[in-house]
Nucleic acid binder design. Structure first.
Lengths: 225, 225
DNA sequence: GTCTATATACTGATAGAC
DNA sequence: GTCTATCAGTATATAGAC
């Protein structure tokens, strides 16, 4: 279970403190973030307690607060790690296919293999709709940039005739993100009946494809379902 | 703000207790449910406190617990009311159009006019993904029946040639619900930029329509955007 | 039916020893 | 850097007066 920290980047600035003695601290912080990810994923941010995180990370609650001076600092670190993971997956998928849309299938597969990340994202994005929530702005910005990213890409596809002519790029961008978000919720309620990667691919085929009914980006990944 | 109780049905069984003295109790319960809806919508179920609900309903916390013996009883009453409202809207929309799909547009409009209901649904459906959450089963059943409802309808439309031939009824049903759920989240983050009713109509046109590009159900409501 | 008062438990955060 | 001990605040729920 606490395996989320194995590929954590050094979030503490290693440049200013080259001393070897602090390497243990960085590992500690990573372990704490991994524990916090699990706790907040399972209980949400409001109900998730620092004591639970501390217990799971193997230190006292006061010890935890030495590394992260407040609960808000901790959740921000967790979100930074979560976002970095997502970006990493999308970038890796974009290396061969070069299509941001095909990367969504890879992201769905990645999420499906990491339920805790889905739980965290679903519960936290819902909690943070309250304007005074500590990470409200984080998610607001995230949606803004995500919609704009896809809108721009779909606009280019429309210019190339690769988008259904009756599909508005801005609306389609929003729909795409909304669909993926909602799908994660359904998946959490019934993981055996919902295959997110398959649904995403079908959705893209139906919604995006102009004339051709084949895979969206021409990416070399036709065999999976 | 506390205007959600004006069209509350009598959830307390008025048939068994015809006495006039208890009418005040029913009204009290309705007021409490309305207050709880607001509190849980704004703060979520976990963080929303009975004290807040009691204050808003104009009685003490102990007095509140006389009517609803526990927090779980209260949230169940709130959900029952919420579901009843949604069913009412869908049924009313189905009376003239007779198309469940067109009713979704009406539902989106209704939700847009009642932000508290959207906040409640979004935050609670996310919270309740945890299997041990008090209302987990409620939402699990809700998704099951909703998917089955739309799947059956889309299957009939497919038989009539009214569904894109490359769209699978079961997948499309899931996608439709996922899209609407995700859209509500985005709307909560940016209410001025997102028009749920418009997006739902566009989505239906693109995803469902077989050949005709016109409105899905032929309902007499072409002028809105 | 509603109240005050309280029991019991847990929260995030702090102080200071080591 | 980690600990124990403790803070002040808040939570749900109960007991008993009126």
């Amino acid at each position: 279970m606490p395996s989320g920290a194995r590929n954590l980047p050094a979030m503490t600035s290693t440049a200013t403190r080259p001393r070897g003695e602090y390497a243990k601290t960085a590992a500690r912080r990573d372990a704490i973030v991994a524990a916090a990810l699990e706790v907040f994923a399972a209980s949400g941010y409001a109900k998730g307690s620092l004591r639970d995180v501390a217990d799971r990370a193997g230190l006292s609650q006061a010890g935890l607060l030495h590394h992260f001076p407040s609960k808000v600092h901790l959740i921000e670190a967790v979100l930074a790690w979560h976002d970095e993971q997502s970006v990493r997956v999308v970038r890796a998928a974009g290396r061969d296919g070069a299509d941001p849309l095909a990367a969504l299938v890879a992201l769905a597969e990645h999420n499906q293999a990491n339920p805790a990340m889905v739980e965290l994202y679903v519960s936290l994005s819902a909690e943070a709709t309250s304007p005074d929530h500590p990470v409200h702005e984080h998610f607001r910005r995230r949606y803004d940039t995500a919609v704009e990213l896809f809108r721009a890409h779909l606009g280019r596809q429309a210019d190339s005739g690769l988008l259904r002519p009756d599909a508005d790029p801005a609306s389609t961008a929003r729909s795409l993100i909304a669909f993926m978000d909602g799908l994660q919720v359904q998946w959490l309620y019934d993981r055996s009946s919902v295959d997110m990667a398959v649904e995403v691919r079908r959705f893209l085929d139906v919604l995006i494809a102009a004339r051709a009914v084949g895979p969206v980006g021409g990416s070399p990944e036709p065999a999976d379902d």
